[in-house]
Amino acid sequence: MKKISIFKKPITQYSLFMPILCLFLVLIVNLIQTPHFFKITIQNGVLYGYIIDILNRSSGLVILAVGMTLVVASSGGTDISVGAVCALAGAVCVAALGTGETYKMPYIAAVLLALLIGLICGVFNGFLVSFMKVQPMVATLILFTAGRGIAQLVTGSFILYVKPKSFTYLGSFIPGVPIPTPCFVAAFVVILTWLVLTKTSLGMYIQSVGINSKASFLVGLNSKVIIFLTYVFCGICAAIAGLISVSRTASIDANNVGLYIELDAILAVAIGGNSLAGGKFSLAGSVIGAITIQALTTTLYAMRVAADQLPLYKAIVVVAIVAIQSPVLRKWFKNLTLKLAPGKPVKEAM
């Protein structure tokens, strides 16, 4: 007997099912924990509430997750230097603007300089990975260890503060606009990337290189250049996230900007249902993954968990989420449900 369904396939088979379910679960827990979770109010002319806070704080992570998704998809490796690149780009921007009452150079020039730094870091990583055939994790390990050191040299090992008020616009609110600026930036990056990937063949190229770079090369794709480009893009994304991060506090602390954020970004990609072995990817999944992680963090803060203890709970959730997605466990569950369900042929379970 066939059930009539509006879906072409079982709902659990959709690639976005798991990420959305995870986010949903986190939000449900929140709703029980704090009943006024979904309330959005307007205070001082800006939107205010848990949801807005999550969207605002997750925007940097969303941007990183987009870059990381492409890196993972094309090379089957991860870029662990993004946190250090965040710090470096932020440090360069702040150092270029100076700590005086006015900017030392035009704001836009400093931003472009920071983006250029991100680009250079990306070029460095990309060159090692694509042309030197170094494993992505090792190649990016170099900047991971050196990046913060260089950032410390740029800032002279001080925490620098930027005084002009306009510097904080990027990380908080532009006067008169009720929505946090980082949300706009994140949306802009996501939409632009999505358009480029779907309206050109680049998205398909990245997938095909990720699935089999040799075969793609034989078909006529320049695999190396495509992998290279994804790393460059990831570097720029990291620089944008770094700019948002320094703008939030109007200061740069090279030790702490973007600390551990590379791990969150990789988790976002994994929770988004993307295989870390490369190949097919879902940008939407990663974005949802990034928001899920921030929602989880905010939830735990709301439950009065100390910031330092946060990782413990995060780890448990992460293992649960990743284990659910494991093909071995899925098969096991499938067999179990087939055995338990009466009237269905058991032999399929074998």
Binding site: T78, L263, Q309, P311, L312, A315, I316, V318, V319, V322
Partner: peptide
């Protein structure tokens, strides 16, 4: 058959959180 990177990443979080 989970990826070592992700598993030990979670292990890293877990141990650091446990310390706190």
């Amino acid at each position: 058959k989970l990826q070592p990177f992700i598993v030990t990443l979670a292990g890293m979080f877990f141990a650091r959180g446990l310390t706190a």
